[in-house]
């Protein structure tokens, strides 16, 4: 991993208060080193997008500093646009562009020479397994392929900080793996990567460190293992409720129960495993539940505990 720490991304005391008084970011401190893939997790409205928009110069912090190395991104948004590349959550405006054309043109706009940009475009198309659509207009691409083209546009000539907002939305599982390989390679090449998501399980496999943001504040930060350490000695109890039933009342020892669709997810102590099984079986006997699963806790359980929200692993978000 490159050690060019002089070009690390720093956010210090970043606070954003909108005109209506909403405090979207509250004294955020973050550091992302070159080569590091950093996850920024949080439910909708937590303040993730506000932070990103301040980094790329769409919003101005009320207080605090944003820097890459010695470059002050708040004072010089034009420098921020050169040092950061950005994949927004919304689809790229490429209906009229052929896939390869959109990637190449973005590379040229980012200052790449024609030969380098063309080679990199071809390589990305192949690496993401979307070469067959290289001459297809954006309006004819599926959502997933369009998303991958957007990823290639954002990374064809990446900046020192690459911000990826929900990069795998609509992407099929096979190509998701290819995309994560490319994210890893960005880190290997020395980019700091900020992955903005509320898909916790995906982030757990992909990031070096992460922060959970809630109500504009960072409520936890560390490696996935470090964050899960607090849940050591805990088990994840997942009960699939029968459709249409009310959420059953949980015993006191069932912690942080959250219902997502018909899934009731909670944590229990390891020594309460037997009681947990008995409770779940009892629910099944009453017709309240159809099945249950007991297993090791995941980062999602940490996330639920910290935010009170389930993550968006293809299901609705609380």
């Amino acid at each position: 991993m490159p050690t060019d720490t002089a070009m690390a991304f720093h956010a210090e005391g970043v606070t954003k208060v909108y005109a209506d008084g909403l405090r979207a970011n509250d004294a955020l401190d973050l550091r992302i080193a070159p080569g590091e893939v950093f996850g920024l997790l949080g439910p909708n409205g937590a303040g993730k997008s506000t932070l990103v928009k301040q980094i790329i110069g769409l919003l101005k912090p009320t207080e605090g500093t944003l820097r890459i190395g010695e470059h002050d991104l708040v004072a010089h948004p034009e420098i921020a646009r050169q040092l950061c590349s950005y994949l927004p959550q919304a689809q790229m405006p490429i209906d009229s562009f052929k896939a390869a054309e959109a990637i190449e043109l973005t590379g040229r706009i980012r200052g790449g020479d024609r030969a380098t940009v063309r080679a990199r475009t071809d390589a990305l198309l192949e690496a993401l397994d979307i070469t067959q659509w290289r001459d297809e207009l954006g309006m004819k691409l599926s959502g997933g392929v369009k998303r991958l083209v957007g990823f290639a546009m954002a990374t064809v000539l990446p900046g020192r900080l690459v911000i990826l907002d929900e990069p795998t939305n609509d992407v099929d599982p096979l190509r998701r793996r290819l995309l994560w390989e490319q994210v890893r390679r960005l880190g290997d090449e020395g980019c700091a990567v900020m992955l903005v998501t509320h898909n916790v399980l995906e982030a757990e496999k992909s990031v070096d460190r992460l922060a959970v943001i809630m109500d504009g504040k960072i409520v936890a930060e560390g490696t996935p293992s470090a964050l899960k350490a607090a849940d050591r000695g805990q088990l994840r109890l997942q009960v699939m409720l029968s459709p249409g039933v009310e959420t059953p009342e949980s015993p006191e020892w069932v912690r942080h129960p959250v219902r997502v669709g018909n899934n009731l997810v909670a944590t229990i102590d390891e020594d309460a495993a037997s009681a947990g099984i008995d409770w779940a079986v009892g629910l099944m006997g009453q017709g309240t539940a159809e099945e249950y699963a007991l297993g090791a806790t995941t980062l999602e359980d940490v996330y639920i505990r910290l935010t009170g929200h389930a993550s968006a692993n293809g299901e609705d978000e609380a």
């Binding site: 050169q82 200052g111 900046g159 390679r185 090449e189």
Partner: peptide, 27 residues
């Protein structure tokens, strides 16, 4: 499948001045 992407050419130098302006204008 095998990943064959060349390594990402990270932007290192800040671009300023008339050439930067002209390149942006044309692009």
């Amino acid at each position: 499948m095998t990943t064959t992407a060349t390594l990402a050419p990270v932007s290192l130098e800040l671009r300023t001045g008339p050439r930067h302006w002209w390149a942006g204008f044309r692009s």
